[in-house]
């Protein structure tokens, strides 16, 4: 594993690009964070969470981002997934060679909808919707008159839920499912639009070991079909399922 390099003080974006960190893959990365900084303000207090973190994720790679609580793992995941942006002029997120955090809000919405899929520790399913409706939700987002698209999303969600062993639960509400089943629905939802990268934030953190292993098996199956996976965890045994483990400490990638 190569030592990650950080570039504090160096500007990114159009004005200047951070020098690339060493990548495990020789091909151009599909997703990269380049010297990103992220500081949160709590009243008068500024708390820097990421301090020049850089990471490159190759196509078809499964990368685990390992770190303690408060190390900035989830923040890095949010930045990689376009849910948040780095501090102004302090870092770039690149997807397939183009910056995703410099565009307008609409292009970021589209990026979250089409290019990446999220899986969260607490599943984050909508309680009013059925299993099938939750799974096809990304397919319904982003179009006014997309009945054909909705039908396609419903079909694809049905297939994914069948693969996840939930075809008998399609009309159930999330409250009627176990934790493992909810996480399977969340994975089906993340994959319904056929994203190229799956971003999983502690996907087994709320599950027992057996159920967690089955969830990792499901992710592994998708990875085997070519899906790129970036997974945040604080559990080394979970991280061990990945091809590559990146260590994050105090807002910086310290070991890759």
């Amino acid at each position: 594993m190569a030592e990650a390099t950080s570039h504090p003080g160096e500007s990114f974006g159009d004005a200047g690009r951070a020098s690339r960190p060493p990548s495990a893959a020789s091909a151009p990365p599909i997703l990269a964070a380049l010297d990103v900084h992220r500081t949160y303000r709590f009243g008068q207090v500024e708390v820097p969470v990421l301090r020049g973190a850089s990471i490159e994720i190759g196509r078809g790679e499964w990368v685990a981002i390992l770190g303690q609580s408060g190390s900035g793992k989830s923040t890095l995941m949010h930045l990689l997934g376009g849910l948040d942006r780095p501090d102004a002029g302090r870092g770039t997120i690149e997807f397939d060679g183009r910056s995703v955090n410099l565009g307008a809000g609409r292009s970021l919405d589209r990026y979250r909808n089409r290019d990446v899929g999220f899986v969260f520790q607490f599943y984050h399913l909508l309680p009013e919707l059925s299993v099938l409706e939750n799974a096809c939700l990304p397919g319904l987002v982003g179009g006014w008159f997309g009945h054909a698209r909705a039908a396609a999303a419903r079909r694809r969600a049905g297939e994914l839920l069948e693969q996840a062993g939930l075809s008998h639960r399609l009309r159930h509400r999330p409250a009627e499912l176990s934790g493992g089943e909810r996480q399977r629905v969340a994975i089906a939802r993340a994959l319904v639009n056929g994203p190229r990268v799956l971003l999983a934030d502690e996907p087994t953190g709320n599950l027992d070991a057996t159920t967690g292993a089955s969830i990792l098996d499901l992710i592994a199956a998708q990875h085997a079909e070519g899906l790129t996976v970036a997974m945040v965890t604080h559990d080394a045994s979970v991280a061990a399922r990945a091809q590559r483990v990146v260590h994050l400490r105090d807002g910086q990638v310290v070991q890759d």
């Binding site: 979250r112 984050h124 909508l126 987002v141």
Partner: peptide, 16 residues
């Protein structure tokens, strides 16, 4: 609020 976060995570816009 959490539902709104979930919707934003799957690509829903602010206008949506």
């Amino acid at each position: 609020t959490r539902d709104i976060g979930i919707l934003r995570s799957v690509g829903a816009s602010r206008f949506g």
